[in-house]
Design a protein around this nucleic acid. Structure first.
Lengths: 235, 235
DNA sequence: GCTCCTTGTCGAACAGTGTTCGTTCCAACG
DNA sequence: CGTTGGAACGAACACTGTTCGACAAGGAGC
């Protein structure tokens, strides 16, 4: 009943392979990174990467176990661009802050990549470990014992992730300016609708909560935390 | 050609409506919260909520604008269970810590709800604002000026979100124990495979990085940050 | 030189997701 | 009593990550 398909010309064109660069793990990651930098984390899907490489989504799974692994490879590549300093016991507090600044800056350049760090229970990629060790080295040079250094390093990496993610959202189009303004208005309206003096502090705090103060808020938090560490060392 | 369908019995059974409780905004939120507490944030989808209520997903949209709004309603309900203290200028530092502890505890009871806080640029729900105002009141009672209080409050709420999210993942089934252990082994193996002494600190830090130390790490970070605030007030 | 077999490629499909459209139905209001 | 507004809801759309099975190419072994 069903005739076999004619043999002249079946399957994809035979010598197309030479045209496009051969698929490889690095190429997949590189393509994903470009998309990430340009359009943010949410825009990076297996289908779109495949489309960019003029193939189907299934082809990617020959080079990458799954999306999660690809995410970690992207994060690792981003962290690979962050240099680590030689620990200087005289200057450890500033070194700590600078390292966090560098990490945040790198992550913000690839909007949303910080999200991956949240979903990674134990970081195992080389550059994640390099950053972790570097932070521990600085903290120990500053006089903290191992346990203190580990706890502080954990909190600092959490800071870095958190602010990087927040900053991504502010600067990138995760939520647009109009919506934020609208919500700000809603909030002020609601507070004013209540008995006077229900929100005395919050009502006046809108001015400090803009995208421009994001950097100041970050530096404040960092200064407070590192200040606490310094008190600990002195004791 | 096409005959009209017979009029005897079309549409759903007529008096079923009396059997099941009428749909309402509160009922939708309540159902979602139960699912959230029992199975975590990822398990809560519009379809599953609808299924629980024996209806289709489209029905929910009559009571809730979209998933995002429902998420915020859930978070608000969770924060509604967190009491706020009368600010005590003599005891402000401890009050700050306790408030953060309470917030974290409430969020951990609904695993993954902290994620919602990350995606909410400007919180507008009543209980979110109540918590924000309470924190500002405590900080101002402690002697910080408005700007300092706002910056500190921002950082503290970030702490709360971050640790709540992390703790959810540890205690809940977000990633299972076997996988974490496997990754721990991978990490140790990798570090040992490198030239000796490449990761002197990190190699020894595994013992401090378990789920049991999660609480200690949280308290450490909180103590350091609040310690920094106290130094600031004294100056 | 000719098999065989591994390995990469990739179309199609599966089971999910949030959301929208258009229709049906009920109840309360004029 | 008739109209109208809103809730309910089935079906579909456009996505997501992932898997299966068929196919083609290249290198190894005989």
């Amino acid at each position: 009943m069903t005739v076999p398909p004619p043999p002249w010309r079946r399957g994809p064109s035979p010598r197309r392979r030479a045209e496009k660069p051969l698929l490889s793990r690095d190429l997949v990651v590189k393509t994903a990174l470009e998309m990430l930098a340009a359009e943010g984390f949410e825009a990076v899907s297996m289908r779109r990467i495949a489309q960019q490489l003029e193939t189907g989504p299934a082809s990617l799974y020959a080079h990458v176990a799954n999306k999660e692994e690809l995410d970690e490879l992207m994060l690792d590549a981003v962290l690979g661009g962050v240099p680590v300093p030689e620990p200087d016991p005289e200057n450890w507090a500033e070194q700590v802050k600078e390292q966090v600044r560098l990490q945040v800056r790198a992550m913000v350049a690839y909007p949303g990549i910080a999200k991956v760090a949240w979903n990674t229970p134990v970081p195992v990629t080389p550059h994640s470990l390099r950053q972790g060790e570097a932070m521990l080295a600085i903290l120990r040079a500053g006089g903290l014992d191992l346990k203190q250094a580990v706890f502080a390093g954990d909190a600092l990496s959490l800071y870095a992730k958190a602010y990087a993610y927040e900053a991504s959202s502010w600067t990138f189009g995760d939520y647009d300016e109009a919506e934020v303004a609208e919500r700000g208005r809603q909030m002020a309206d609601y507070m004013r609708s209540l008995p006077a003096g229900a929100f005395p502090n919050l009502l006046q705090s809108g001015q400090f909560f803009t995208g421009e103060t994001s950097k100041d808020r970050f530096e404040f938090a960092l200064a407070m935390f590192v200040g606490g560490l310094q008190s600990l060392v002195r004791a």
